[in-house]
Simulated assay, not measured.
Amino acid sequence: MRVLKNAGRGLAAGCFVLAGSSVALAGAWDTLGIGSSELLFAPEDFVVEGSVTYVDRNVDYDITAAAVAGLGPVTTGPVSSRATPNIWNYQGALKFGITDNADCLARINNPLSIEEEMDPDWRGRFSGYETQARTFAFDATCAYRFQVGEGRYIRAIAGVKAQDLSYYSKGAHPLAGTAEVDLKADGLDYGWRVGVAYEVPAYAMRASLIYDSQIKSDLSGDTIVGGNKVYDSTASLTLPQSVELNLQSGIAPGWLVSAGVKWVDWSVIDVLSVDSEVAGIGTPVGETVHRKLNFKDGWTVKAGIGHALNEQVSLGSSLQWDRGVGGSYSDTYTFGFGGSYAASKSVKFTLGTAAIYKTAGSGDATNTASGTVNEYDYDASWAYAVNTKIRLSF
């Protein structure tokens, strides 16, 4: 049996540090946050893990300017509207050892998500009151371990990912009632990852560095005006690359500290544009949507500490800062606490909570293609998350 499965196992496997809630924990649309690939390093040969996160969000948009081209300012409807519905996120993962030195991790999840739903009568309704961008992704990552000294190892990490992206938005139309955009990726889009890790299992010490590539996605579908006038529509989007560094170490019997930093190249998404043409004719209509997002790169920094009270019960806490990328994504501070209970050697349950403080900011959803103006502010707010996880290992 390999050293990794014995040395430091009670510490590394017994401690729990809240992985965090979903939504914007690594900036903008990212739901995975820091440490989402930690299961790859699990000491057991075979692990099945499933987790669900519920997030209670509380952000209100306050209109500062709203207008429709040719019709002037919008003066009817409420100035303020709750913009963030409560959401669920999930992940399922399978880790298995191929040999004493080779391990693989397979996952399904929704790594990127946008969920906004405002009052259909609010003053910003002409540039949109509902937006959904959702992903369904598969990824597989493998690592091979090399011994570089007594009790010290290096892992080479590589993987692939496949992702399905959909986008839906709905807003008021000054002449036709409503306008909807409904797009879906033209098949699966692919990316890759590479990384390296250094480990000293006797001290539960590990440093890992993982790079994830960009994913380019072409979408097609319909723009529907007034519920029955349909236009063929297309869009292209480059989803950002990222680099993540994670560190952990035992500091005393039953105690583990961890830290991580993640950079996401959100500045690659500078504009959201949808092009349309008359269905069945092919006559260009032009841009249905053109919004300048002007995102800046995202940075997330996280630190945590965990303590195994005994062979069954562990507690952990974490603190995280995320630099907002602009617009509706301002800085956030997340305070997490959780615990795990090992019902047996093979079954473990985890429950975590988080309080997320979102700083005040402002956004601009103006559609420059149609001339519809939508500028808004939002105050500081708190969101709350609960995460549950079950882990089966053999």
Rank of each mutant, 00 (worst) to 15 (best):
M1H: 12
V3E: 15
K5Y: 09
A7L: 12
A7S: 08
G10W: 10
G10I: 06
A12R: 12
G14Y: 03
V17E: 12
L18M: 15
A19R: 14
S21K: 07
V23L: 10
V23E: 11
G27A: 05
A28I: 04
I34D: 10
L40T: 03
D45L: 01
E49L: 07
G50R: 00
R57K: 15
N58T: 11
V59T: 09
D60S: 12
A65C: 04
A66N: 06
L71C: 04
L71R: 11
T75I: 13
T76E: 13
V79F: 09
V79K: 11
T84W: 03
P85N: 00
I87K: 04
G97Q: 06
I98L: 08
R107L: 13
R107Q: 15
N109F: 05
N109E: 07
L112C: 00
S113R: 14
M118F: 13
R123Y: 08
R125F: 06
G128I: 01
A137G: 14
A140Y: 06
A143K: 10
R145C: 07
R145F: 01
Y153S: 05
I154K: 05
R155W: 15
A156P: 02
K161A: 08
Y167G: 00
G171F: 02
A172L: 09
P174A: 14
L175T: 13
T178G: 07
G187M: 07
G187E: 05
G195F: 00
V196P: 09
A197D: 08
V200C: 11
M205Q: 14
D212K: 10
I215Y: 06
D218N: 13
S220K: 10
I224H: 02
G226P: 02
V230M: 02
D232H: 11
S233M: 01
A235I: 01
S236N: 12
L239G: 02
S242H: 06
E244H: 05
L245S: 05
L247A: 06
I251L: 06
P253Q: 04
A259E: 04
G260M: 00
V261R: 00
V264W: 11
S267Y: 07
V268R: 11
I269D: 00
D275F: 14
D275Y: 15
E277R: 10
V278P: 03
G280K: 03
G282E: 01
T283W: 06
P284K: 02
P284E: 05
G286R: 08
G286C: 11
L293R: 06
F295M: 12
G298E: 10
L309F: 14
E311P: 13
L319R: 03
Q320P: 05
R323I: 07
G324Q: 00
G327D: 02
T332A: 10
Y333V: 13
F335W: 12
G339S: 04
S340W: 03
A342R: 14
A342C: 11
A343L: 15
S346Q: 15
V347S: 11
K348Q: 14
T353G: 15
T353I: 10
A354S: 13
T359P: 11
T359L: 14
S362L: 02
T372N: 11
A380Q: 00
S381H: 02
W382T: 02
A383L: 02
A385P: 08
N387K: 08
T388Q: 07
L392H: 07
L392E: 07
L392D: 11
F394W: 12
